[in-house]
Design a protein around this nucleic acid. Structure first.
Lengths: 361, 361
DNA sequence: TTTAGCACTCATTTTGCCAGAGTGCTAAAT
DNA sequence: ATTTAGCACTCTGGCAAAATGAGTGCTAAA
């Protein structure tokens, strides 16, 4: 109710403004120094336009609002997760990459890339380097991809071991080996090959099964029926079973160099967190669904208790308008949100483009 | 010279024996407890068959020989790298895996594996889990592999973008996209395809270039000449340029849980060491050359200064008798060499087998 | 409404101290 | 000739008391 009182008695606008200013100051200082910031420091930063005592009053307000807190009775203030959230949602101003950062990032473009893996690996290293935090890149391409081409290749003369090569619209190539229950004739194989390519071109992978089943129904009795049946079996054994999802993680040690990791316990904790990839995947996967610019998860906002001390800034990347993965930066909640958002956003954009180009080739 | 004196005057055999016994005791105790071991402790372990004072004398000998050392004036003894080396080369007895370990390891066999990556990932996780150290797996397959089959697939109607699928004798499949300088006719492509498969079957990759060049010379003037030329260009653009080498690293946090990492500095150091993959690769690559059972690198024996505190136990794995990679365990020099050698050896064997089987399918 | 002053709190650092583990040496015992 | 007991000495690690100092909350004055 301290707040309401204030609202009634004062020009709440300028008041609000000043509070924000001081809050931002605390936040920035804390992000820089990693030590709780006290009233005196703030006063100095504001060129003594206000005395420490006044600042203290305001700080008390901010604390009441839940934006900052004391680690202990007489330490400086530290932003709470709620505080960071407020900053991120309301106060934060869009920031731009420096020339340098931009240039560094752009080196993902240096193309002699042939392997998707290499590109993504590079991207994650760059991201970690520029952010000076840990970088995550999720690639989840194939699952939401579109069929482009398939090739069936006999592996050897015995004729029932088959190599299935599958190319998606994003330009990704995957292979599968299948063992047929019985040998297949060359002509039959050729037919199957042509059939699949005709039928499935442009189809999202998610619809392939349905489509083939429907066609099977239609062709019931005709001599194509068996062909479709074989096709379906094969596709099921290959493309549809592969969950193509891979996570890159780079620069853990950068996070561990942050001052909050002076105690070893924290270090272990983080290491465990990152070794268990599932929880991270969980988070990153969420972004595949929603198509926003960037997402920010702050400490205790995340389900995983172990994430309490960390924040995650993520952004998904796409080919055309099809999301194929997520890039993210993980660090202590005390991170430069504004800069990292810009960075992650940019990287997602570039990565999408580079992968698109590779697909085109 | 204490040593020579002893040699002259005593029954050196029983003397040597006792020294070894005590040294082994020190080593084992230190491996277990990670604290310097003193004369009293040893005496107790030997059921007081010798007094601490005697032990101290022997310890002094061992120290003079360079097998153990003091961290400071009045602490217990700790094995030196030279000491570990002596143990490993001379004293160590072959150890066997427990039923439990064996069973755990064997789960790499659980086959629903289709992807090489998955198998190796699994293997490295198992290795780390059972050893309770960090596990490394290098896969360097293709470079020393043998040609089995190639398939050229037109990617689309424009006819100058080609997908090259390459299958090696180990059963590894790799794809490359190439853009031809000019479109190629279907018939020509078909011919090229057949030609390559005929010519190169069974050839080690390292010889492909030479072989094709020689054939080109032979066919000079004939209408095959151009075909070979195209073939060579394509192979060069694809198989020969790919350096297929990948490193898995698992369980870093396990090493960090060792008591030697109470100081944070060590932790960072190790983390950096592991993030820089090149030095590790260097070491693991060496094993590809020599075909020994197991290799052990102890601390300062390794060039890399940062490795001073760590040991590495490695063993290469093969398809048939062709080495295709290396598995290894990394931990503090204070590690259970005997157990880990058994473990690494076993895992290398299993991994080779599993990958071979996969190739056969 | 802001500021100065003061008493108080609590984390951190410093210091000193002690116990414990272990050594090396010497002299006695076997 | 070896082994052992005894003793003086060294160094670590832990603990507690004391000093430090940054920062607060509250009150009263500006």
């Amino acid at each position: 109710m301290g707040i309401t009182r204030i609202h009634i008695k004062r020009n709440s606008d300028t008041f609000e403004l000043r509070r924000c200013q001081i809050f931002t100051e605390i936040l920035n200082l804390y992000i820089q120094t990693a030590t709780p910031v006290g009233s005196r420091t703030i006063a100095r930063r504001l060129r003594n336009s206000l005395s420490p005592a006044t600042i203290r009053n305001i700080m008390a307000d901010l604390e009441e609002m839940g934006y900052i807190e004391h680690p202990y009775t007489s330490a400086g203030r530290v932003p709470t997760d709620q505080g960071y959230r407020y900053y991120v949602n309301v106060l934060m101003q869009e920031s731009h990459l420096t020339k340098d950062e931009e240039e560094t990032i752009r080196t993902v473009y240096e193309r002699h890339w042939t392997e998707l893996e290499e590109i993504i690996g590079r991207a994650s290293r760059l991201l970690s380097e520029v952010s000076n935090q840990a970088a995550l890149v999720l690639f989840s391409g194939v699952s939401r991809d579109i069929f482009k081409r398939i090739a069936l290749i006999l592996l050897d003369s015995s004729s029932n071991r088959l190599l299935v090569v599958f190319v998606s619209a994003s330009g990704l190539i995957r292979n599968y080996k299948v063992e047929l229950p019985e040998p297949i004739e060359d002509i039959q194989l050729e037919r199957l090959n042509r059939l699949l390519n005709q039928e499935l071109e442009g189809l999202p992978l998610s619809q392939i099964e349905y489509h083939l089943k429907r066609r099977m129904m239609m062709e019931q009795g005709s001599l194509y029926y068996n062909l479709f049946k074989q096709a379906l079996a094969m596709i099921k054994a290959t493309i549809l079973t592969s969950k193509e999802e891979r996570l890159w993680l780079e620069g853990t040690s950068r996070v561990l160099e942050q001052p909050e990791f002076r105690e070893v316990a924290r270090t272990r904790e983080l290491l465990h967190l990152l070794e268990e990839k599932e929880p991270l995947l969980e988070l990153l996967r969420q972004d595949l669904e929603q198509d926003q610019r960037c997402r920010i998860y702050i400490g205790s906002e995340m389900e995983n208790k172990a994430m309490k001390w960390y924040s995650l800034v993520t952004c998904s990347y796409k080919i055309g308008n099809r999301v194929i993965g997520t890039v993210g930066i993980l660090g202590p909640t005390r991170m430069e949100y504004s800069r990292l958002v810009a960075l992650v956003d940019r990287m997602a954009g570039l990565l999408g483009k580079v992968i698109s180009q590779m697909g085109e080739l």
